[in-house]
Computed example of a mutant assay.
Amino acid sequence: MKKCTHYEKALMGVSVSLLGIYTSLQSSEITFEEAAKRFGLTETDLRFRLTVWGRRLPRLLKVLDKICADTVSRAEAAEQLGVSPRQVNKLQESWNVLRPIKAYRIDRAATKIKWELHKKCAIEVIDGSSNFISAAESAQLSPRQMRRRVATLLLDHSQMSYKDLKSLSASKRRRIADHIEVAENFELCEQADMRLIASGKVSLRDVAFKKVLSTDERRKTAE
């Protein structure tokens, strides 16, 4: 089984103290090899860091633990370590540390994705590739709710009803569905995510979590 890094454990909400690992190593409670694995580093990399940071290492690890516990801001961490906020980001990355993601952010992302999933399934009804029953099941809605989603999209983007749609050819329905996808700003990556959720291959919250992480990474890169 693949071992989780400190970074991955932090994402899963597992409490791992960097300072605790270091203290255990110093007191010979764990071997150097085991300490490197717990840090998510190679033995060579850990040895190098012990040399470079020396007596300052406990302070660094303590601050990184605070970041992981979300009890200190990036600016405060920078002040405590005597480095710039940008350097704090680099230290977090190099020590496999990520500030916990607030549950409300995942909930908010999940709500948005749920609406996107509803629209994706409604568009499949519009283009004729699915029916109300199958689409409703994929979107976790009732058939009546799915009919409302379809009716809303058709009215908003084509000024027509589903009854009007039923009389159109398959190619015309596809063009209308394509128009709605563009108007609703459906990107290819979003469509792929919606297909995975609808098929049950991934959970909605997994996709929400991935999107929040992606947003954080882009923000960090831009800083």
Rank of each mutant, 00 (worst) to 15 (best):
H6W: 05
H6Q: 08
Y7K: 07
Y7T: 01
E8S: 06
E8H: 03
A10D: 02
L11W: 04
V14D: 14
S15E: 15
I21G: 00
I21C: 03
L25Q: 02
F32P: 01
E34D: 14
K37V: 06
F39Q: 01
L41V: 00
L41M: 15
L41G: 00
T42R: 04
T44Y: 06
L46E: 00
R47F: 07
L50G: 07
T51M: 11
T51V: 09
V52T: 11
W53Y: 15
R55N: 14
L57Q: 06
P58W: 04
P58V: 05
R59M: 11
K62Q: 12
L64G: 00
K66F: 09
C68S: 13
T71W: 04
E76M: 04
A77T: 02
A78G: 04
E79V: 06
Q80Y: 03
G82C: 05
G82E: 05
G82H: 04
P85C: 07
Q87S: 11
Q87G: 04
N89V: 08
Q92S: 09
A103N: 09
A103K: 12
Y104K: 12
Y104S: 13
Y104V: 12
I106H: 03
D107K: 11
A109I: 02
T111E: 14
E116Q: 15
L117A: 02
H118Q: 13
K119L: 05
K120V: 07
K120Y: 14
C121R: 08
C121E: 15
D127W: 03
D127S: 07
N131K: 09
I133P: 01
I133Y: 13
S134R: 15
S134I: 12
A135G: 13
A136R: 02
A136I: 03
E137G: 11
Q140H: 11
S142Y: 07
M146L: 15
R149F: 03
V150S: 01
L153T: 00
L154D: 00
S158N: 11
Q159P: 01
Q159Y: 10
M160Y: 08
K163E: 13
L168G: 02
K172G: 04
R173Q: 09
R175L: 15
A177V: 03
D178W: 07
H179N: 13
I180F: 04
I180L: 06
I180G: 00
E181K: 13
E181M: 10
E184I: 05
N185I: 06
F186W: 10
F186V: 09
C189M: 12
Q191M: 14
Q191S: 11
A192M: 10
G200N: 08
K201L: 12
V202P: 02
S203T: 15
L204Y: 03
R205T: 15
R205Q: 15
V207P: 01
S214L: 13
K220T: 15
T221E: 15
E223W: 10
